[in-house]
């Protein structure tokens, strides 16, 4: 959101001529006659958008809206945030990655991971498992600890026993396997909804008692249809309240049969 104001006019008003950005800052102290130049280039921007992942008993779903923004501008209404990892040869286990934040870093990260998984297969003669891939992604992010990829990443696949596997990351590589995670601009809007609807937070078994005797409702593996509806609801709601989210919803449903891709329209306002 801070990026919105980057192109704003300079504070001195419209009298400027040659220099449109306030690049010269008068340095303190008597020694510097001309002042020091500030770094005028900021290598990041926020392209907005939101992502979400939920894992189930034998599937995992990744979803992201397709709007790309810079400030109040919409760059495009269709810029996918979801990437397939490791090629789509028939015998490769399906892995997908969602990245949201600075889109150029996201694309670079997805491309690096994809290359690594492809080279792993070439060198070892077998595909990379999702757990190994997840850890490698963490390393990729941490490798750039001091010039980070400015993205929230979610990796989805199926683990060795065929269960849905979902890993979420911060920009510098901390990661964790989870049931569900929302990322990006509307994460703070979607995540509480997911806590309640996927992990049944703040839900109790009706009539189980009063006070401490009240039993929390136990989470179970949600069926695929329910999860798809949750994803859809999460995004239609986020679109209502967040200006950087909208235009289209892209979903990747990862099952043992491969990756099924779904696209649905969202509001374009």
């Amino acid at each position: 959101m801070g990026s919105i104001f980057q192109g704003a006019p300079i504070p001195e008003g419209p009298g400027y001529s040659f220099r449109e950005t306030p690049a010269v800052r008068q340095a303190p102290g008597p020694s510097s006659a001309a002042g020091e130049r500030q770094h005028g280039f900021y290598p990041y921007t926020d392209n907005g958008g939101s992502t979400l992942g939920i894992s189930g008993a034998d599937f995992a779903i990744l979803a992201g809206d397709t709007r790309s923004t810079s400030g109040y501008n919409i760059n495009t209404r269709y810029a996918p945030k979801l990437y397939k990892i490791g090629g789509d040869a028939p015998d490769t286990p399906p892995i997908a990655l969602s990245v949201v934040g600075f889109a150029a870093d996201g694309a670079a990260l997805a491309e690096r991971l994809d290359t690594i998984v492809k080279m792993y297969r070439y060198q070892h003669g077998k595909p990379m498992g999702v757990a190994a891939c997840a850890q490698r992604l963490s390393h990729l992010l941490y490798m750039k600890r001091f010039f980070p990829f400015y993205v929230a990443a979610i990796l989805a696949g199926l683990d060795e026993s065929g269960r849905g596997a979902l890993y979420s990351y911060d920009p510098v590589g901390s990661y964790e396997r989870e049931q569900c995670r929302a990322g990006g601009a509307a994460a703070s809007l979607i995540m509480p909804f997911l806590d309640n609807q996927v992990n049944f937070k703040n839900q109790n078994v009706p009539g189980s008692g009063q006070g401490h005797a009240l039993e929390p409702r136990k989470p179970y593996d949600l069926p695929r249809g329910t999860v798809e509806e949750l994803v859809q609801d999460a995004f239609t709601s986020a679109v209502e309240r967040h200006i950087e989210v909208g235009d289209g919803l892209q979903m990747m449903i990862i099952t043992r049969d491969g990756i099924e891709e779904v696209y649905r329209d969202l509001k374009k306002d």
Binding site: Y44, T45, N75, T76, R77, Y78, A104, A108
Partner: peptide, 22 residues
């Protein structure tokens, strides 16, 4: 498609840079 100084890329049926974006 577009490419800019940050390496950001995107594609759309119509594109405009700078003032043209508005």
């Amino acid at each position: 498609a577009s490419a800019d100084l940050l390496g950001s890329t995107f594609s759309a049926p119509s594109l405009a840079t700078g003032f043209g974006a508005h």
